[in-house]
Amino acid sequence: MKANVVLQLIWKDFQMNSRVIIFTLAGGVLALAILLIGGPTPLVIGTVFFFVAIIFCACLLPMQSIVNERKKQTLPFIMSLPVSSSRYGVAKLASNIGMFLALWLVLLGVGIYMILAQHVLPVGTIPMGLILMNFPLIGFCLITGTALVGESEGLATAAIAVVNSSYWLVWYLLVSHVPTLTRTWNGPVAVWSPAVFKTLGVELAVIVLIMGVTLYLESRKHSFI
């Protein structure tokens, strides 16, 4: 029976990038632990470090598993296997999203636990927290797509620069211009308003769009190495 090469490629990426995941996970959990100290300064430091850990991983994973594969000339080795460029693209997207999502979900889970069980933040912050957590996920998808389709370290670096400088702007715009999202974040309960669902829906649609465009462009390539 023939092996599923796409699955083997995904597993290979997990093996090769496990250190980045573990390192980021440890950093993220440590940042959340800072919140336990209590007070405004640990709150700011912990929150900033928490997002820095996620953003760090969102930049490093695509660079390591996609850009470096081309740069270090291991791509011809992979492409000598029974895999087409489009299936390679599927494997790369699946492995990168899988790795990032695993980390993202664990940190999200730990964050929610800290809010619900350790009361480090009001429960009302959960919906907004989820919306904010999606930004690094969207940024990660954009960097991954650019790295895969662009086949260039320069383009991937440009995508990282654009994405990273956009986070703060988008967060600011959302917090300052959509008051329905922020009105209840100091409350004792999580309020899942239509505005929250609408924003989450838009974020999900952007992720699906980026992935779709990436796979489409990848399948249209005529020269792969």
Binding site: K2, A3, Q8, K12, M16, Q73, T74, S80, P82, V83
Partner: peptide
């Protein structure tokens, strides 16, 4: 490509992994 063995001068293996890891990787496919 299931039946083609390809190697080129510009082909590199993964620096951070052992040859044994590469062997196991190929075994898992072929």
């Amino acid at each position: 490509k299931w039946d083609i063995g390809f190697a080129s001068e510009d082909m590199r293996l993964y620096d951070s992994m052992t040859l044994g890891w590469h062997i196991n990787f190929m075994k898992s496919i072929y």
